[in-house]
């Protein structure tokens, strides 16, 4: 049984349809890249999976129908989201941000501190006083503190300096190697996605147009659907 099974997912913003049939299946321990040009529905797919947007179609996490659940229950079932734009709790300190999200499991303040030593150094600072890169690390740390089975990173390296981006990618590789957690990645860096991901799904105009192993992802597909 797939960890996450999405089939024929459709969603809209009010009257405006945005997804017309997204299919993807994530197995436990798998890292999947969700690719496509801007505006093809990647972030919308993530919002629909997390039940932040009404949707129709099949949406199951280990056989449990997510359509029947509010978004906080989806998160409790084991989907950890690092949303686009970081969105930390700005008035809380680094430690408070992490504690607020904590759920029982192997990820705690110590393990997050090992993954991102910078956060340990800034533990008493408010999130609003952190740099963009540190806020991103905090957003990832906060999602990990929920001890998810599937971690979704939506544009986790967007707008960051190259050196910080490398730190984030190193952390993602470490999470994959050390925990075997399933990860769904959205990012503009095809090069990095290709080195981390096992499989890929490409969206175009709100629907899945290609799915397969990352080894089968060709430059032709990249230029046709991703725009590189």
């Amino acid at each position: 049984m797939s960890l996450l099974s999405v089939q024929g997912l459709q969603a809209s913003y009010g009257e405006v349809p945005a997804l017309f049939g997204v299919d993807l299946h994530i197995e436990p321990g798998m890292v999947m890249a969700l690719m496509g040009r801007n505006g093809t529905g990647k972030s919308t797919t993530v919002k629909a999976i997390c039940r932040m947007l009404p949707s129709t179609g099949r949406l199951f996490l280990e056989g449990q129908n997510l359509h029947a659940l509010p978004s906080y229950k989806v998160a409790r079932l084991g989907i950890g989201l690092v949303p686009e734009g970081r969105r930390c709790f700005t008035d809380l300190t680094v430690t408070e941000n992490l504690i607020a999200a904590a759920r029982p499991g192997p990820w705690d303040l110590a393990t997050i501190g090992q993954l991102f030593p910078r956060l340990s150094e800034r533990s008493t600072q408010t999130a609003s006083s952190l740099s963009g890169g540190e806020q991103q690390m905090l957003a990832i740390g906060r999602a990990l503190m929920t001890n998810p089975r599937l971690l979704i990173l939506d544009e986790a390296t967007e707008g960051l300096a190259p050196i910080v981006r490398q730190e984030i990618w190193s952390a993602i590789r470490r999470i994959k190697a050390e925990t075997g957690m399933a990860i769904l990645l959205i990012d503009k860096s095809i090069k990095e996605l290709a080195t981390v991901s096992d499989t890929a799904v490409i969206l175009s105009r709100g629907q899945t147009v290609w799915a397969g192993s990352m080894l089968d992802f060709t430059p032709d597909l990249a230029s046709r659907y991703v725009g590189v």
Partner: peptide, 14 residues
Amino acid sequence: NAARQAPARVETVG
């Protein structure tokens, strides 16, 4: 406190 700042965001952490 987090819910006061961003109710939608706290839902994503369960």
